[in-house]
């Protein structure tokens, strides 16, 4: 593209504010993106609120609703699917009492499914609080989740079955 055309196409986008990294920071701090924080960000940077909201709703990794203290991410990509991620996801869902994409009522766990984590050699893959675990079987999920359910066992859905 010629320069003139680019300038004409994006005249109000000359001063980038690194929106995504700012949103990541907010999310790291709160675990999700609360509305007052986004309004504050909009006021501080001058970026219109709708632009921030547009980016926040576009990316699946940003959440506009509160998420659980412990985050479990199950990969459902092609390689993981072929190696039985559906069974793993179902087992995790049963153990934590949370539907994929949801957060438990007590705000303790949330379970997410993603399309690929980029580590297909380790399929099926589960991420527990940012830690990657490969070659998970449905039978191995209980041991895997002990780390987050362990101290709280007996309370809530993670109780011994």
């Amino acid at each position: 593209m010629q320069e003139g055309m680019i300038e004409r196409s994006h005249p109000f986008r000359q001063n980038g504010i690194s929106l995504i990294s700012q949103l990541q920071q907010i999310q790291q701090e709160h675990g999700w993106l609360p509305e007052p924080e986004l309004r504050r960000l909009s006021a501080a940077t001058g970026e219109p609120l709708i632009e921030i909201y547009r980016v926040a709703t576009f990316y699946k990794s940003f959440s506009l609703a509160p998420r659980g203290r412990h985050r479990v991410t199950a990969c459902c990509g092609t390689a993981c699917h072929v190696r039985g991620s559906a069974g793993v996801t179902r087992e995790i869902s049963k153990l934590l009492g949370v539907k994929p994409g949801g957060t438990s009522a007590d705000g303790r766990y949330s379970l997410e499914t993603v399309n690929c984590l980029g580590a297909c050699a380790l399929a099926p893959l589960v991420v527990v609080d940012g830690e990657y675990h490969g070659n998970i079987t449905p039978a191995g999920t209980r041991k895997l989740l002990k780390k987050i359910t362990g101290p709280e066992a007996g309370n809530g859905a993670a109780a011994e079955r």
Binding site: P48, L49, I50, E51, I52, R54, F58
Partner: peptide
Amino acid sequence: AEQMHGHAIGMVGRGAERRIGSAFNKKS
């Protein structure tokens, strides 16, 4: 955005769920 400098509405969501909306579904 460009004529009114309003930035009241914009694209929300992604893919098949993409739609025109306002931030947090509230009137801007």
